[in-house]
Design a protein around this nucleic acid. Structure first.
Lengths: 225, 225
DNA sequence: TGATGTAAGCATACAACGTACGCTATTAGG
DNA sequence: CCTAATAGCGTACGTTGTATGCTTACATCA
């Protein structure tokens, strides 16, 4: 922990914790978590591996910092919106952030200590729901419900081997060809039907989100009654 | 790839791919993914690290195998159930499996190639939904919706630092004490309210699942209309 | 009953990883 | 200029995944 001081004796810092985290994020975005090594981060900053340790406790600390950086990218709910608009906006923003940084999903499981951006986010959303008339418990339940859907959707999206409907069609054709007709008949049939109907997986997010928000509406109604 | 043969010349195998995967799972369950090393697996089987490579391509292969082992633990939908009962049972079983093996959630993100248990599962559920009158596309959408919720819930559950309401109360008190009253006011208020009301996070799964299944109902209705 | 070929298991070795430790360089303040 | 403090680096070590080649133990057939 470097003592907080505007300027003191000692060598001036060429690096900073923020630079380290940003370099780490760039590497994870471009090449995935397995490419994120201390040496790789240091090279990107034109420094040596051990220099990072002046600004970061260890690699775990970097991973914690990365998760919080991702949370910092998520839009905070704007004032004056309805609870539905606020939750929708927040959910969409979360999904976008997790799409930009798919590696963050795997990190969330192992990292139990939430950072300030994460906590600030929870606080803001709970505040918005409270302002819209939700009691604390119902707000928490609603928030958890929406988050479950968003994280789960992001997780599934990340594990899909395609990004566009065209790619999906190609992959589906390959998958269909790979298996005999009797092996996975329903899966096969579904793959056919999806390709035929021009199914766009990325559009499913909004549809599902609307249904989940209907569920929140029910939660809210039964809390009032 | 060892050639498929009932019994041929050569030394008899003391190890097998299945034993390797089971040992790996035991280690991951007990000590987490970071404890899962080739040497640790081999020691548990009283063998040397390099011996594993006769039965497994590399460590990635083990991880892929583990994910599929987890899927194999999930109940298949039983015949003759309503779609709602079938989806509910499948969802609950999936959540249980992911609770037993929380490390599997992080693995799912990176592993795009589904194994036979995974594919078989998808096929069975889609088949059950088809039998209940869902067309292929609607079945896929419904299945994805439920899976999003289940995976997301499991992910959040895994990242919680507590297991029981009592532990939650302890952690919440500690968290409340850690922050000033003005820092995260709504979060603080929610933490108070949750503890006061005896909130049990693990019970939230069923509640949320019901709401999601209501959403599936809507999906089904609008597909028919 | 060998002799032979094949498959299983192991010993050794190496590159890449995270990081402990101590040294050097560079500054502000006296 | 001297001193104390801080940033950055060089070296080194233990651990990881795994390439390579040897040894061992069996089935087969002479």
């Amino acid at each position: 922990m470097p003592a907080k001081r505007v300027r003191g004796p000692g060598r001036p810092a060429r690096l900073s914790r923020d630079q380290v985290l940003r370099a780490a994020m760039a590497i994870a975005d471009k090449a995935g978590l397995e490419a994120l090594t201390m040496r790789a981060v240091s090279q990107r900053l034109k420094a040596e591996a051990m220099s990072l340790y002046r600004h970061v406790r260890n690699k775990e600390d970097i991973l914690d910092g990365l998760v919080d950086l991702v949370f910092a990218e998520i839009d905070l709910p704007q004032r004056g919106a309805t609870w539905r608009a606020a939750l929708r906006r927040h959910a969409a923003s979360t999904r976008q952030a997790l799409r930009r940084h798919t590696w963050a999903i795997a990190l969330m499981e192992s990292r139990a200590r939430p950072g300030p951006a994460n906590l600030g986010h929870h606080d803001a959303v709970l505040g918005a729901l409270g302002a819209a008339g939700f009691d604390s418990v119902t707000a928490t339940r609603a928030y958890n419900l929406v988050n479950s859907y968003v994280y789960g959707f992001a997780l599934q999206e990340a594990s899909l081997p395609f990004d566009t409907p065209e790619e999906m069609a190609t992959m589906a054709d390959a998958a269909i060809a790979q298996f005999s007709a009797t092996e996975y008949p329903h899966l096969r049939e579904a793959a056919f039907a999806l390709v035929r109907s021009g199914f766009d997986y990325s559009k499913e997010f909004e549809t599902g989100l609307d249904l989940v928000l209907d569920g929140v509406e029910d939660l809210r109604a039964s809390a009032r009654g």
